[in-house]
């Protein structure tokens, strides 16, 4: 399947869903900040990659896909979409590792802007490479 940019999902999505993500993301960020304070940078660091957003994304995706299906026998569409999204996330996890290593190597040497730009770029490239290699092996 070809990679494409589909903005119809934005029109179908509600502001309530975006607000829900905002509140959830804000809560998780506050919680990880508090964990770092209580557990120190080691425990807090581990929780920076806690699966907080992914489960919510999978559930919302499955619901959205199932809501578009009229035929009750075709309700596996949501499950199939969640399987694909979870597989994609498993290929982005090595990229998250690359992000962490890039931050670790540069944060004490570079100005903050370059640290986040560099680590963000490293994550993007590693995620694209990981995904591309996976797709190539499926052919």
């Amino acid at each position: 399947m070809k990679l494409r940019f589909d903005t119809s999902a934005l029109r179908r999505g509600s502001w309530k869903k975006q607000l829900g993500r905002f509140i959830w993301g804000g809560t998780i960020t506050v919680a990880t900040g508090l964990l770092a304070k209580w557990l120190g940078p080691r425990g807090g660091g581990l929780f920076l990659a806690f699966p907080a957003i992914l489960p919510l994304s999978l559930v919302m995706l499955a619901r959205r896909e199932n809501a578009e299906v009229k035929d009750p026998h075709a309700r596996d569409r949501g499950r199939h979409a969640a399987v694909a999204a979870a597989a994609g996330a498993s290929f982005a996890a090595p990229a998250l590792l690359v992000f962490a290593v890039a931050t670790w190597l540069t944060v004490e040497r570079w100005p903050p802007v370059f640290v986040w730009l560099g680590a963000g770029t490293a994550w993007s490239l590693a995620a694209l490479l990981s995904y591309g290699l996976w797709r190539a092996t499926l052919r």
């Binding site: 806690f50 994304s57 597989a87 994609g88 982005a92 998250l96």
Partner: peptide
Amino acid sequence: KPHSFGGLFGAAPSVA
């Protein structure tokens, strides 16, 4: 799209 590519964002370093 496909959903597998969208899934990459599920493991994005957003909170980090």
